[in-house]
């Protein structure tokens, strides 16, 4: 028991290096998924037919395949020459984009049509309406659902160890090989992931509270 504890404490510094890689991977993928996700949803809701078809296929493909298969496809077939970290960012990001776009889509489709009508009646173009009215409202309303992409990506990111990204799980594996104490180290790894998970969620909740608009979305209306 005590021995296990010392193994963990001795490894902690090394594992924290892995935490850094994990967080870099997750934030890069989240960002890529966000940008792509917005582009996808604008294409899907407002684009011409071929674009809509393309987005539908994209979403079907990236949501229909296991993370691991996508990683292997990109690692062995599509982008074999890129560094593994970059491949992992691209795969996790493109996959997240498929999910994020559908979160945004659900929100856009529920925005009141009056918002669009009002914007157009003021002489705004289609694009100005999307940029100044639809997207800002969508982002705010989508935030609670969107926030859940973080834990999903965090837990998915561990799979990137399959192509050799030296994130937290990979580093834990190295320590296991060096010390032979699998149980203690993998448990420690699990605890770190859980802390990252709920810590991140708390942070997002704080941000949510900060940018909320009275009476907008599902938060209760404070009449003054």
């Amino acid at each position: 028991m005590l021995e296990s504890l010392t193994v963990v404490t001795d490894s902690l510094g090394y594992l924290l290096g892995g935490v850094l890689v994990t967080l870099e991977l997750v934030s890069a993928a989240l960002l890529l998924g966000f940008i792509l996700g917005i582009l996808l949803v604008v294409g899907q809701v407002y684009g011409p037919k071929p674009v809509r078809g393309f987005v539908a296929v994209y979403v079907w493909f990236f949501r229909g395949l296991p993370n691991l298969i996508l990683l292997f496809l990109f690692y062995f077939v599509f982008l074999p020459t890129l560094p593994v970290f970059l491949i992992a960012v691209i795969v996790l990001g493109m996959r997240s984009a498929a999910y994020q776009s559908q979160i945004f889509r659900g929100v856009i489709e529920n925005l009141s049509e009056g918002q669009t009508l009002a914007a157009r009646s003021l002489g705004m173009t289609n694009w100005q309406t999307i940029k100044h009215i639809i997207i800002p409202q969508t982002l705010r309303l989508a935030l609670p659902s969107w926030a859940n992409e973080y834990p999903v990506l965090l837990t998915d990111s561990a799979v990137a160890s399959a192509i050799g990204v030296t994130e937290l799980l990979t580093r834990t594996g190295f320590r296991v090989a060096a010390t032979g104490n699998a149980m203690a180290l993998y448990l420690a790894c699990a605890v770190i992931f859980i802390l990252l998970n709920y810590g991140g969620m708390l942070l997002i909740q704080k941000i949510e509270e900060r940018i909320r608009i009275p009476g907008f979305g599902n938060n209760e209306c404070d009449q003054i």
Binding site: T155, A158, L169, M183, A184, Y186, I194
Partner: peptide, 19 residues
């Protein structure tokens, strides 16, 4: 829910034998 599934599998497959 908080623990990545892969880590969970490693605990079960590689960790449990040590106990």
């Amino acid at each position: 829910r908080g623990c990545p599934l892969l880590v969970l599998l490693f605990i079960l497959y590689f960790g449990l034998p040590s106990i």
